[in-house]
């Protein structure tokens, strides 16, 4: 009756490296359920990542997997999709990976609208390197490099994606575990560049330094800040202060890059 994750987890690879209560494991389960529900074949699915705790995900799952360099996952994924458009290409990674060092690749993949699903596990911190602030760390928050509170304002990843031209943008949280696969499955079915941001938790390097005393407090925080889009539409700006809107935030049908390029090839070859 439960879900058989064993079908997709590589034998002998568990337990994974993530810390107790790290949300990345919850998100990975959601990703597996999503792939299962859309029916992508293992042989024809590539999962690509950059560097970071979140980016270790591909090593555990039984697909054509590629763990690349920091921030470059989307660019490697672009090469795969362009060279073999019949492959399903999914890119995964953290907030630092995706919108700091990889920000340029991210916005340009959005602009091209290439058919890749990009899962960003946003824990608001550089987890792997021990908790330095990331471009999504809230202003004022503590990180190992913001001992007096973070002076930087954060990015809103979803707005960034929409602004850059992504044609599917959704947001969920690691607390709302049952929603993760729904959002990802819809993203995978969408033809174009789809971005799914999952608000995640890093109890080890973020929670510890900030006001979250335990894994559970971090989970409950995700529960408290999330407001589904349908509810948010009925709320005032005042009521929405400090909240994060979840659900499918944006969806649009536009020509997809890799298939448009194939059409160009056919046109050129026809003379």
């Amino acid at each position: 009756m439960g879900f058989d994750y064993g079908k997709y987890i590589r034998p002998g690879k568990l337990p994974h490296i993530w810390c107790p209560g790290c949300g990345h494991g919850i998100v990975m389960k959601g990703l597996i359920r999503a792939i299962d529900s859309v029916g992508f074949s293992k042989d024809m699915t590539s999962i690509v990542s950059g560097i970071g705790c979140a980016s270790r995900l591909p090593g555990y799952v039984d697909f054509c997997t590629l763990h690349t360099t920091h921030g470059r996952g989307v660019a490697f994924a672009t090469g795969i999709k362009m060279a073999k458009p019949e492959m399903n290409v999914i890119c995964v990674g953290g907030d630092g990976d995706g919108v700091a060092i990889g920000g340029n690749h991210f916005i340009h993949a959005c602009r091209r609208n290439i058919d890749i699903t990009y899962l960003i596990m946003n824990n608001n911190i550089y987890g792997m390197t021990g908790g330095q602030f990331s471009p999504t760390t809230p202003t004022g928050a503590k990180a190992s490099t913001t001992p007096y509170g973070n002076p930087d304002p954060p990015f809103d990843i979803a707005k960034l994606a929409i602004g850059a031209g992504a044609t599917f943008v959704a947001r969920g949280t690691a607390f709302h575990a049952a929603q993760i696969d729904k959002l990802l499955a819809e993203a995978m079915r969408h033809k174009g560049f789809s971005v799914v941001e999952i608000l995640d938790s890093c109890p080890t390097t973020y929670g510890r330094r900030n006001k979250y005393k335990s894994v559970i407090e971090m989970m409950n925080h995700l529960k408290d800040v999330a407001v589904p889009l349908s509810a948010a539409e009925k709320m005032t700006a005042e009521q929405l202060r400090g909240k994060v809107i979840t659900g499918v935030l944006y969806k649009e049908n536009k020509p997809e890059y890799a298939s448009e390029y194939r059409k160009l090839v056919e046109r050129v070859q026809a003379g």
Binding site: T69, A75, A77, T78, G79, M82, H105, H108
Partner: peptide, 27 residues
């Protein structure tokens, strides 16, 4: 395109090198 291949102008050289490796992995 004449020979059925793909050309992509990437956002920078880092991305270009990455895309090349990704493409090569598909054979």
């Amino acid at each position: 395109p004449k020979v059925g291949g793909s050309f992509i102008q990437m956002e920078d050289e880092i991305g270009a090198m990455a895309a090349v490796i990704g493409a090569s992995l598909t054979g």
